[in-house]
Structures are given as structure tokens and as C-alpha cells.
Design a protein around this nucleic acid. Structure first.
Length: 621
DNA sequence: GTAGGGTTAG
């Protein structure tokens, strides 16, 4: 039985029970104790690299099983080695060149690999299908898959025939570039023309592409197809689709696929499978299901890894349960899993969301003391926390810290900072920062743009907002309805009703659909200028166009009518509100009461008004 | 004895 202490613990946070040290003592606690130490980095002494290359061969190899190529940790060493190799007589074999090329590629120096390949051709080092595949991969990783195809053609000329590996690399390149149609076409062509026999890796690559593109159904169809063609799907195949379904909130479909994989295909799930499912369930707040999966993992002795714990930490933090998140972190440490930057960043974010900045800072310092380098997301959480609390000096200090630490603020960092500055009324600094951001070649996104426009409007810089809008011209950012709503509101609040009207009419021309909020803002604009007739007209029109007025619409219109001494439709509107279950806000109520006092409205309305005031409002009356 | 996919967390 579960000890009662644990029960109360688990009732606070359902799935914690399955993580409690007592409950999981036998399986989980013992499993994580092994191997965290990474193999020591053996840095090469600055003597000739090729010399080592020859001397390591027999005697040292037993002690250092890693080859010279695997030991290369920086580009300089690699280039030096290449130079030495090219000056050898006779030239080392293509195999050795390939391994060097691979080492450079592993360090992500793709263009350098390509350069070396060119030199190999110049000095007539023989190249083979392996070389071609490595070089194609370099092109693809740089999102230059078309050049990868050119390399394929170059191979053809030299009688180097592509094989399934070559094509997988190219297919993956197309997927990386989101050229999904091209990828599908390639796969079909390969099968139809018998250019190679696709294997599971190739299907997995295509499936990954389809999932990236949001085409889960086709991905599942391909899963069935590969099986039918005698190509057995593996755990990666299923994991890819399961994760994609979870990200699309279709967790039940994911669970269905999970069952198919386990019970019909006999494929064992791994920690990746569970992580995806747990993540998906956390996003939907299905804690009982999360708990069940954790139990399943325990039963199958599948150890939770740093990601599993981080997913749980993040989920708890987003729920505001930072204390429970802390429990999870303590638990993982107890079990020998070190929290990493992501784990701590989630915790920091949790504290920031609750405005507990000193706690957030504590964690931030803790990270530093553990040698963990905070990344831009960590900084963004803190920036957000400070800005929300209007602690703008602290935020600004942190923002400058990002650059000092050798990082670059991203669009989110800038947007957060700009919003914070506007909120404390420092519009000039905010707008300067917006320009600085663009100078730094960062493109503002929809959020940045709306933050800036709103900030300018709220800081009495509507003209600036409008000129920015015009300056942006046909930019995609100018096609968001939110942008128009902000500007219409800003313009009409500063007496530029004509501008507001032009913007509103522009929507039609541009084929943009106004939101209810857009109508509200425009109606409010008309009322402000005493154009109650137009306000009423628009009120009716929005309904005709299928946009139902909401509570705000009614309140805005009522206030407009009252302020302009139009009393004939008040009662009708109030009755409509009652029918729709809307309520009157404080401003409307006080206006109504004023008019009743002044006898321009009948006191018999009081009963109806009483029904339209929210509960807490009635007490105030 | 050299190449390909590798899915999962903030």
C-alpha cells in the first residue's frame, strides 16, 4: 500500500507518486548510477599530426582505441593533417581522405569539407561513393541540396554510382529544406526506376519530412506501405509519427499508434517514445495519463532521462507548481541525473511567471556555479519576468549582459525589452531599440510589430505608428488584422477618425477579415466623435456579416448612445444583452444610473440593469 | 576497416 504521506504528496501533483524515491526504489533508483563520466578529451600535442597518425597505429591503439581522425577536435589540426596527407608520396588511400573529410564534417565545417573535396579532385586523389555521400551531406546541411544534386552528377561523370546512402542524404536534404513535394517525387522515382531499393532509413527520412510538414496521415500511410513492401518499421519510425501527433495535440491517435507498435508489431518503446507521449499529455494537462505512463516505464525498467524530468519540471512550472518542480529536480539529482540548462531554465521560467525574481536569480546563479552556461532562452525568461514587474533597470542590465556574454539577443529578447520599455513610458528608448534590432539584421515578427505599434499608440506617438505602418508598405506584417485594429484604435483615440475610417475600409480592399475587436474599436471611434448613427449602422452590419457582437460591443455602443443623449434604443439593447447572457461594465452602469437620476431614462429600467450587473457588482450597488 | 536516417525537453 502507498504510505499516506506519499498519497497526500501525490494528490498535490498526480504523477509525483510514481517518481517518489520510496515507490520507485527498486527499479529507478538503481538504474541511473552508472556511466555519466564522459571519456576524457585527449587534446593533441602540437607536433606533426601525420607523425602521430603513423606512430599511433599499433602500440598506442590498444590504450587509445580512437583513431587519429576521431581525435581531431579542431579545424586547424584537420587542415594541417590534410596538408601533410596531400604531400605524402604515394598519396594515402581514399579511405583515409574520407575519414578526414568525415571528421571535418562532424565538426560542422561543411564548406571546408567541400573545399577539401575540391582540392582532392585537383590533385587527383581518387574519390569514391563514400566521398560523394559525405560531400553531398555537407551541401544538404548547408541547405544547398541543389548543389548536392550537382555533386551527384559530378559522380556520374566519373563513374561513381550513387547508392541508397547517397539518395538518403539527398532525400534528407530536401526534407531539411521543407521541399516535401520534391522529396516525395525523388522517392517515387527511385522506386519506379529501380535506382535503389529503399530501406527503413530512407522511409524514416521521408516520414520525418511528412510529419514536419504536418502531414501525419500520409506519414501513417507510408508506415503501412513500407511494412507491406517488406521493410519493417522500427522504433524510430513510430517515434517520429507519435511525436508529430503529440505535437498536434492528437495524443489519443498517438496512443493508438503506440498500442499498435507494442501489441501488434512487437516493437518495444524506448525513452524517446515515452518522452513524446508524456510531453503531449502534459500539454493537455492529462496528469492521470502521465502518471500511468511513468508507471509503465517503471514496470519496464525504462529509465527516465534528463528530458523526461525536464518535461515534468516544465509542465509543473507552467502550472505554477514550482515547489513540485523543485522536488522533481532534487529527485533526479538523487538518482544521478544532472539537470542541464533546459531543466534549470524551465524552473527559472516558473519563478519568473510567478514574479519571484529573487528565486529565479538564485537558480540562475546556481546554474553558473555548476558550470552551466545560460542560453538565450534562459535570459528571455528572466527578461520577461523583470519586464512584467516593470523592473526595467534590471531588465536592461540583463539585456546588455547577453551581448557581454558573447551571445546575441534574438527577436524575442528584443520584443520583450521593447514592450517593457513602452510599458514604463520610455517610448523613445523602446523605439530606438526597435531600430537597433533591425540594424542587427533581426526581422521583427508579428509580436514585435504589434508591440511596437501598440506601444507607440499608447505613448501618444500615433503619428510614428502610422508612418511606420506606411513605411512597411506591402510587408506581410501589414496584412495582420491585429495591426489594423491597433492602428484604428490609436487613430480614433487621437481624433484622427478619418484615418481610422480609411484603415477600416482598407480591410475590404485587402480582403482582410475584421475581428469583433476591430468592429468594437471602430464603433467606439464613431461614438467618441458623436457619430452615433454610424456606430449603430456598423453594429447592425457586423451582425449581417456574421460577426456576433460581444459584451464589449454592447457596452461600447450603450456608452456612446448615453453620452450622446440617445435614449430610444437603450432598453432594447439591454434586453438583447440579457438574452445573450452578457453583462454591463462599471462605466456603463454608472452612466445608466446618471441618466436615470437625471430622468432621461425611466427608473423602471433599474430591475433589468440589476440583472445585467455581475454578482460582485450588485454588492457594490 | 569509409557514407545514410535517429525521432524526445525549456
Amino acid at each position: 500500500m502507498v504510505p499516506s504521506r506519499l498519497r497526500s504528496f501525490s494528490s498535490r501533483c498526480g504523477f509525483l507518486y510514481y517518481l517518489s524515491p520510496v515507490a520507485t526504489h527498486y527499479s529507478l533508483l538503481s538504474l541511473h548510477r552508472s556511466s555519466f563520466s564522459e571519456p576524457g578529451n585527449q587534446i593533441l600535442p602540437p607536433k606533426t599530426i601525420l607523425g602521430r597518425f603513423h606512430s599511433t597505429s599499433s602500440s598506442n591503439r590498444a590504450k587509445h582505441p580512437r583513431s587519429i581522425f576521431e581525435q581531431i577536435t579542431n579545424l586547424d589540426d584537420a587542415l594541417k593533417l590534410f596538408d601533410e596527407m596531400t604531400h605524402k608520396q604515394p598519396l594515402p588511400s581514399v579511405l583515409k581522405f574520407n575519414r578526414l573529410l568525415q571528421a571535418v564534417t562532424k565538426m560542422k565545417h561543411y564548406s571546408c569539407s567541400i573545399e577539401l573535396f575540391k582540392q582532392m579532385n585537383l590533385i587527383c586523389v581518387p574519390v569514391n561513393a563514400y566521398t560523394i555521400s559525405i560531400v553531398i551531406k555537407c551541401c544538404c546541411q548547408m541547405h544547398r541540396t541543389s548543389e548536392g544534386f550537382a555533386v551527384l552528377g559530378y559522380g556520374f561523370i566519373r563513374d561513381i554510382l550513387p547508392n541508397v546512402c547517397t539518395f538518403i542524404t539527398l532525400l534528407n536534404g530536401l526534407v531539411l529544406e521543407d521541399r516535401i513535394l520534391k522529396a516525395e517525387k525523388l522517392l517515387k522515382k527511385l522506386i519506379k526506376e529501380g535506382l535503389c531499393k529503399p530501406n527503413a532509413i530512407m522511409y524514416n527520412t521521408m516520414i520525418k519530412g511528412l510529419c514536419r510538414f504536418g502531414n501525419n496521415d500520409t506519414a501513417i500511410a507510408l508506415l503501412k506501405l513500407m511494412d507491406g513492401r517488406g521493410c519493417k518499421p522500427d522504433v524510430v519510425t513510430y517515434n517520429t509519427i507519435i511525436d508529430s501527433l503529440c505535437k498536434d495535440k492528437m495524443v489519443d491517435d498517438a496512443l493508438k499508434l503506440f498500442n499498435e507498435m507494442v501489441f501488434h508489431k512487437g516493437i518495444l518503446p524506448d525513452v524517446v517514445t515515452y518522452n513524446s507521449l508524456i510531453h503531449g499529455l502534459c500539454n493537455l494537462c492529462r496528469w492521470d495519463d502521465v502518471s500511468n505512463l511513468l508507471k509503465e516505464m517503471e514496470d519496464q525498467s525504462i529509465s527516465l532521462d534528463v528530458r523526461t524530468y525536464s518535461i515534468l519540471v516544465d509542465a509543473l512550472c507552467k502550472e505554477g507548481k514550482v515547489e513540485d518542480a523543485n522536488c522533481i529536480i532534487n529527485l533526479m539529482i538523487e538518482r544521478g541525473i544532472d539537470p542541464n540548462v533546459v531543466t534549470y531554465s524551465s524552473l527559472i521560467d516558473g519563478y519568473c511567471l510567478r514574479g519571484e525574481m529573487s528565486k529565479a536569480n538564485e537558480v540562475f546563479n546556481l546554474m553558473g556555479s555548476q558550470g552551466l552556461v545560460p542560453d538565450i532562452l534562459t535570459y528571455n525568461s528572466l527578461l520577461n519576468g523583470y519586464c512584467k514587474k516593470l523592473l526595467i533597470e534590471e531588465a536592461m542590465h540583463l539585456f546588455n549582459e547577453i551581448t557581454k556574454k558573447g551571445m546575441k539577443p534574438d527577436v524575442i529578447a528584443y520584443s520583450t525589452m521593447i514592450q517593457g520599455l513602452f510599458r514604463v513610458g520610455r517610448g523613445k528608448v523602446a523605439y530606438d531599440l526597435f531600430h537597433e534590432m533591425r540594424t542587427n539584421k533581426l526581422m521583427p515578427n508579428e509580436s514585435t510589430y504589434t508591440i511596437v505599434l501598440k506601444g507607440l499608440c499608447n505613448n501618444k506617438q500615433v503619428d510614428e505608428a502610422l508612418s511606420l505602418f506606411h513605411l512597411m508598405g506591402g510587408n506581410k506584417l501589414n496584412s495582420y488584422i491585429k495591426v489594423y485594429t491597433i492602428l484604428i484604435d490609436g487613430a480614433s483615440r487621437t481624433g484622427k477618425l478619418d484615418v481610422a475610417r480609411v484603415l477600416f475600409n482598407d480591410l475590404n480592399v485587402k480582403g482582410l477579415q475584421p475581428h469583433v475587436r476591430t468592429y468594437n474599436v471602430m464603433i467606439n471611434g464613431f461614438c467618441r466623435e458623436g457619430l452615433v448613427g454610424e456606430a449603430k449602422e456598423l453594429f447592425l452590419k457586423m451582425e449581417e456579416r456574421g460577426f456576433l457582437p460581444n459584451s464589449v460591443t454592447y457596452n461600447v455602443l450603450l456608452q456612446g448612445l448615453l453620452k450622446n443623449q440617445q435614449h430610444d434604443t437603450i432598453e432594447m439593447l439591454l434586453l438583447e444583452m440579457e438574452g445573450k447572457g452578457f453583462s454591463v461594465d462599471a462605466t456603463t452602469v454608472s452612466l445608466l444610473l446618471d441618466h436615470i437620476k437625471a430622468r432621461s431614462l425611466d427608473a423602471s429600467l433599474l430591475k433589468l440593469i440589476g440583472k445585467l450587473v455581475p454578482k460582485e457588482g450588485v454588492d457594490a450597488l
